[in-house]
Nucleic acid binder design. Structure first.
Lengths: 305, 305
DNA sequence: GTCGACTCGGGTAATTCGGGTC
DNA sequence: AATGTCCGAATTACCCGAGTCG
């Protein structure tokens, strides 16, 4: 997928004339780079930001290598959840992609899409499977499709700035459900973090090593399956004791029952991705304010994060 | 880090054509040195100065931190395997992506990239882990990165034609290693199949249901971990008996020992993705010839696949 | 010295520039 | 005030045989 677009491509995608695009660039309405010869180049992510703002309408996304819009009015996230649930069951990957991208282009926050559309639909499929109305392979295929879409969304988020705070996360040993941690990474990246999901099935010792090496300011754990609760608690506690001061621990996932949470220490428990997003935002605001004060005192423009 | 860059490397990093870079050099927009034979060499520092000026936009900065990238054929793939191994260990996702995409742009077959670069590098990381030279999280993170790259490559393959033959596959119950089946899907799609990976951890009963519903002409099983060999054999045999006539069964993966294979029936055992690719191609050629003969007889241009 | 892959230079087709006008 | 269309000049992308690099 091309990351740099010519005015002509943008014009086709927005269904306007080329001159209009050029004028908008010249007026600063669209961030523009120039080649050495003076030709305009527009970054795809910059364009998508404006589209999501509602400033421009993307009539022909396929001109940019993006999935085509369905054209139908997006009757809200709830209906999208139902429609994508059906599409996932059928394995209609392209239709799923359309639904999600429609929502993204309509400026729905990724966290809300994760919670109210994707998680919702997957949950529904899980229920059907429990009642014998769906095959296991349909559920697995649905997870595959969602994972692919999450990865595609990730490439569409503008790269985090150099000085962005770092975040690290994953799932613990015995937990092989990657969607949660993948969503967390995506949502944090949208919020402007340098977030890295380490993957699934990670023993506490290696998580400690990763924390030691990277020293992130946020650390998330997605818990969808806990085979041995006492072992889990023990591993978690040692992890928290050695690194809980330096990094903000965020935990979430269906496997964290109330009684389990009662025996854990953490900076935040996030039931949903939207909780994670708002927690991350408040954390970042706070650290910005602190580093801002530092700058005021020292008159030093160097950033420290 | 290589200090001198070729026009090709610069072109890829800036996402412009090679001739543009050459013209800019000739016009003095980029300071240029020359080899004795008249080949242009651009100093990394000279380029970075212009990038900071905002005169050029560095779309793919990773390309510059590297020795000459693109496919020096076999030597290229082997070296790429080593280089991507290091990048995977460090978690340098962008660098990994650049290495793989360079190979793709140099027209290396995806199957060869999977076998000789990605699998090679992952294997090496596995060895290091066994010897205590690598952390578990580095290995998991490497798998995550490779999976993302595979998904991105998938979006770059043109959609298969309507009448393409179908293929289905996945991993069996207890096997949670998705890279093998994801690579298989990718390679088959490159070969023009409508290939769908159903995911991992699939009980035989649901695989049977999927085969029953979709009736593919090829069915692959990736086997990287077999917790219970007798259960596996039993499940596989019942699957093969009911659907082995209709679909070509292809099996592969490290977990398939010689003794296990001796007790299995299949159309092909594929040690590597390149085997899978050539098997799929020969299968398709054969079916094309058959349907071609039919057309000769009936003078009917309708395809049947 | 051989060899494959890369680069050179030049030519051509397609695209984009800026400006003027509707 | 904003958009779409037209224009010659300039820029960029693609192509190819000969020469260079490692």
């Amino acid at each position: 997928m091309r990351e740099q677009l010519t005015p002509k491509q943008v014009a086709r995608a927005l269904e306007v004339s080329e001159s209009s695009v050029k004028r908008w660039c010249d007026r600063g309405l669209i961030p523009t780079q120039y080649t050495a010869g003076g030709h305009r180049r527009i970054a795809l992510s910059d364009l998508l930001v404006r589209v999501r703002d509602g400033r421009y309408r993307l009539v022909h996304p396929e001109a940019l290598g993006l999935p085509p819009t369905s054209g139908r009015s997006l009757g809200g996230r709830q209906r999208a959840g139902q429609r994508i649930g059906e599409a996932l069951l059928e394995g209609a990957e392209q239709r799923c992609r359309q639904i999600v991208f429609d929502l993204v282009l309509a400026d729905q926050p990724l966290a809300a899409i994760c919670d109210e559309v994707l998680a919702e639909a997957l949950c529904e499929i899980g229920h059907r499977w429990e009642q014998g109305e769906a095959e296991v392979y349909q559920e697995r295929r649905a997870c595959e499709i969602v994972l692919r879409i999450l990865h595609e969304l990730r490439t569409m988020i503008p790269a985090p700035p150099e000085d962005a705070p770092e975040a690290l996360g994953g799932t613990m040993a015995g937990d092989r459900y990657v969607l949660g941690t993948t969503m967390a990474e995506l949502v944090l990246r949208e919020a402007g973090w340098k977030a890295i999901s380490l993957g699934d099935n990670l023993p506490a010792s290696t998580l400690a090593a990763a924390l030691q090496t990277h020293r992130p300011s946020l650390f998330w754990l997605s818990c969808s399956h806990i085979p041995d609760e006492t072992a889990f608690l023990q591993a978690y506690q040692s992890l928290y004791q050695s690194h809980g001061q330096r990094a903000a621990f965020v935990v979430g996932g269906n496997a964290l029952t109330e009684s389990l949470r009662g025996q854990m220490q953490y900076a935040s428990y996030c039931d949903k991705m939207q909780h994670l997003a708002s927690f991350a935002n408040s954390l970042q605001r706070m650290s910005n304010r602190i580093s801002g004060e530092k700058h005021d005192e020292s008159q030093n423009p160097t950033l420290e994060n």
